[in-house]
Write a protein that binds this DNA or RNA. Sequence first.
DNA 1: TGTACATCAGTGAACGCGCGTTCACTGATGTAC
DNA 2: TGTACATCAGTGAACGCGCGTTCACTGATGTAC
Lengths: 211, 211
Amino acid sequence: MSWKRRAREGAYHHGNLKEALIQAARELIAEKGPAGFTFADAARSAGVSPAAPYRHFRDREALLADVAREGYARFEAMLSTGWANGKPDALTAFHNVGRAYLAFARAEPAYYAAMFESGLPPDANAELRAASERAFAVLRTAAEQLGAQLPAGKRPPALMMSLHTWSLAHGIASLFGRGDGGRRTLPMTAEELLESAMLIYLQGLGFPQKS
Amino acid sequence: MSWKRRAREGAYHHGNLKEALIQAARELIAEKGPAGFTFADAARSAGVSPAAPYRHFRDREALLADVAREGYARFEAMLSTGWANGKPDALTAFHNVGRAYLAFARAEPAYYAAMFESGLPPDANAELRAASERAFAVLRTAAEQLGAQLPAGKRPPALMMSLHTWSLAHGIASLFGRGDGGRRTLPMTAEELLESAMLIYLQGLGFPQKS
DNA sequence: TGTACATCAGTGAACGCGCGTTCACTGATGTAC
DNA sequence: TGTACATCAGTGAACGCGCGTTCACTGATGTAC
């Protein structure tokens, strides 16, 4: 029994248990929400004894923090791809960042929940905070470069502009755009809602509307 | 012992245990988050045996749903007060609705969490959904009356405008404006952030800026 | 290249704990007459 | 007004369960010589 399982699964030493536990936690969060997974659950999913996770994580919260940290890294990558260095033009790219934001929340509800809705303190550890700030920096850079297109006197503070955009996208994602079906319904898509809000907001800042 | 305690607390029959359990749950949520309270906890806080809550709630989720329902009712009242029937003028009153939104999230983080961050399905029961819709209706009415001040051709759909505002306020509240200290810090207040975003948004819609 | 040893990663059994839930019960309240 | 009875709301003991955590252990891997 036991040796057979081990032979099948490869080894007494798992090899990459830490990452396997993070992925197990992510899947459990996707199924049952961030409150609905336990340390023992994650061990079970990874096919390992309930004591094994203690070799890699101090406790449940430390594991959750690593899930969130990985989520921020992927989030950053997704926003960066959306921004695409401001191509083809800053205005289009800025809208693409918004779309990427919603796409992430929809495609990765478990990461999103770990990042924003798990009750985890945002500065649970330095790495988590840093990962979160790197993701936000993408949005901020985008706002900076888009803002630079306005004449100097009418240029909004990039920090403010990026916080507005982040809040709006987060609000829409968490109210209407979740991928796990647990949210309110709408007479339009979350993407349309964000797009229209951003158009109005950018017009308010003085950007000319696309034809 | 036992008779003494009963004498002190008044009676074998609690009188209003249902409401007492809802308040106990609210306090526990405030302390430990929506995931961190149990059915047994609530009973203990209310000074009653662990079996007692079953007389009033099917399970933990039913209790949570009632907390959220009561939260929506208070939320509605707070938004209504902010709107104040559009006094002194629709634009000012609309901004006041935004302020009321943030004030609620700050003053009642436990209700807010039960309503929006507890993982409770928004249509867990008909009463919950109705309470939520009544609260949203305040925002929608406000958007309608404010929109009516624009010339007919430039009038935005009130539903869209209220969804934009709701999303923005919710995003700011849940990222920066929570009363329980578990949120990100900012170089400005949540209120200033919302105010500035709304000003830009409304300008984008064609409203004249206040002097 | 081989051997001895240290270190590392996971085991499995055990524990105490609190939770959710059920149950027959009992004290308090309301009502019919 | 008083009495009998039905109903209601809460009791308290009990249960099975799974969780978090500890512990001495053991199998696998890496390294010094």
